[in-house]
Design a protein around this nucleic acid. Structure first.
Length: 469
RNA sequence: GUGGCUAUGGUGAAGAGGUUAUCACAGCGGGUUGUGGUCCCGUUAUCGAGGGUUCGAUUCCCUCUAGCCACCCCA
């Protein structure tokens, strides 16, 4: 007791076998294992975060049922080929952000970087084309991208996504945008959607040629990176922030001018639908998005805010992907979808509505305190009675000290405390303390549940009728 | 993947090349063994890890790791 053996931080490693030796305090603390930390880019969603996540989940579900979507859960792990084919080999997501590995059996698997490819794979695999079309599916879950972490960007992040498969009508596109808009609005986030059309693969190819021709003529002004992009994925040049490119962009051919008639009409109708509902949008001729599968409509939501737009501030996005089913080996199936970045949404919610500083304990109306071994046993049983009666009761059975228990009762906001000690056990009673008044009465233990029930009902009655007793 | 900045108890901060590293909040224990919200006391950090410079570093240098910011890209 006299020696100040400082309890060394609990080693997280397994109990080492090599202990035993006489370790002085300093030596042992030097050896203390480093606390393990979360993997880079991953994070814990702590109890304090949960209310926000619960809210997003609630609205995700509410809107899903309101708009007629059914839930689907696909595996987090898929064949790498699914993403290479679906998302596109030349995209950054596949080229440098995919978590891939080879199994002992020699398969190449990957953690999903997004949800659409999996959902469509599932649609094809399970022959959902035999269901009434379109099939509306929604999902929610973690996605993985091996990107460099930054604010609003994690290697494991969460998306809620909505897919409509088997319908080419522009109203589908519009309603997806409306759904996303309402999702965000329902969480207190006002947004404007940026929207563009990429046309059909053919019109897009024509446009691409024109664009490449244009930028080729200005090749001298391009950076190395942009030259590479010119070859690989010229559309990406459009959202470059390189001042030189920004300048060149102004003169560059615009995709709308290259759209085929059908795509143009489709696009116009999407916009008309949005006008009709009053969803704010902004045409963005440079919006192309980083996944190859998009055709026609593409869009992204941005929060309306005064503060300077952060580059990674898109809260979600989506578009039409009429060619994806075929890319994945299914028959040609028009489809559209969108997904929302829950992490970013939650961080917006936190900005608007910061968490309270004090981490308060879960609140309860009734607290059960015990004294002595007899009291503790009786209290344990009484607790079960309350639980069966549907009344939540707080307790601290592991504490012997009544004072400590009363402190906890107070912290948990209890209105009533039930104290049961040796005396009460012998008398078959219980002390019922009114925490606000500080008064106490003796109640028959058999009537404890009934008595509390009465008080709870009474209080709730008083609350609404404003009667003062 | 590239560049810049940062790294002090559970949290938020302060600090100086040199014997006991400050403050607040939270946590735990106690203030005579059956009672709360106030108050008082105690306790909770070898200053991210490793290496170097130095008589001496937590404070200077290097490496690593992580976080933040920007780019890339995206949610």
């Amino acid at each position: 007791m006299p020696n100040k053996k400082t309890p060394v931080k609990k080693p997280t490693a397994k109990p080492a076998s090599s202990e035993g030796g006489v370790t002085t305090a300093s030596a042992s603390s030097k050896k203390a294992a480093q606390p393990l930390q979360v993997v880079r880019g991953m994070r814990d969603l702590l109890p304090g975060d949960q209310p926000y996540w619960r809210q997003t989940n609630a609205i995700a579900e509410k809107l899903a049922s309101a708009y007629g979507y059914e839930r689907i859960d696909t595996p987090i792990v898929e064949d790498t080929a699914l993403f290479v084919r679906g998302v596109g080999r030349a995209t950054d997501i596949v080229e440098k952000e995919l978590y891939s590995w080879e199994t002992l059996g020699g398969e190449s698997l990957s953690l999903r970087p997004e949800g659409t490819a999996s959902v469509l794979r599932s649609y094809i695999q399970h022959g959902m084309l035999n269901m009434p079309q379109p099939v509306r599916l929604w999902y929610k879950g973690p996605m993985f991208r091996h990107d460099r972490p930054q604010s609003g960007r994690f290697r494991q992040f969460y998306q809620a996504g909505y897919e409509v498969i088997g319908d080419a009508d522009p109203v589908i596109d519009a309603q997806l945008i409306i759904l996303g808009y309402n999702f965000l609005k329902g969480l207190g986030i006002e947004t404007t959607v940026r929207i563009n059309s990429l046309g059909t693969p053919e019109s897009r190819a024509n446009y691409k040629n024109a664009l490449v021709a244009y930028f080729r003529s200005k090749k001298a002004k391009l950076s190395e990176e942009d030259k590479k992009r010119l070859l690989k994925n010229p559309l990406r040049l459009l959202d470059s922030k390189d001042p030189a490119i920004v300048e060149l962009k102004a003169e560059a051919p615009q995709i709308v001018d290259w759209l085929d008639e059908e795509s143009k009409a489709h696009f116009m109708r999407v916009l008309e639908f949005l006008d009709e509902v009053g969803v704010p949008y902004q045409l963005d001729p440079y919006l192309v998005r980083g996944l190859d599968y998009y055709t026609k409509t593409v869009f992204e939501w941005y929060a309306n805010s005064d503060d300077q737009e952060l580059s990674q501030s898109a809260l979600g996005g989506g578009g039409r992907y009429d060619g994806l089913a075929e890319l994945l080996g299914g028959r040609p199936t028009p489809a559209a979808g969108m997904s929302l970045g829950l992490d970013r949404i939650v961080s917006r919610m936190k900005e608007k509505n910061p968490p309270s500083q004090d981490h308060r304990m879960p609140q309860v109306d009734v607290f059960l305190a015990q004294l002595g071994e007899m009291g503790r046993k009786r209290a344990l049983a009484l607790f079960e009675e309350f639980r069966e009666a549907g009344i939540p009761v707080g307790e601290a059975f592991s504490k012997a000290n009544i004072k400590a228990q009363m402190e906890i009762a107070n912290k948990r906001g209890a209105k009533w405390a039930i104290v049961i000690g040796q005396k009460e056990v012998l008398d078959g009673t219980v002390q019922l303390r009114d925490m606000d008044a500080g008064s106490q009465e003796i109640v028959d233990v058999k009537k404890a549940v009934h008595e509390i029930k009465k008080k709870l009902a009474n209080r709730n009655g008083v609350d609404t009728s404003s009667v003062t007793v």
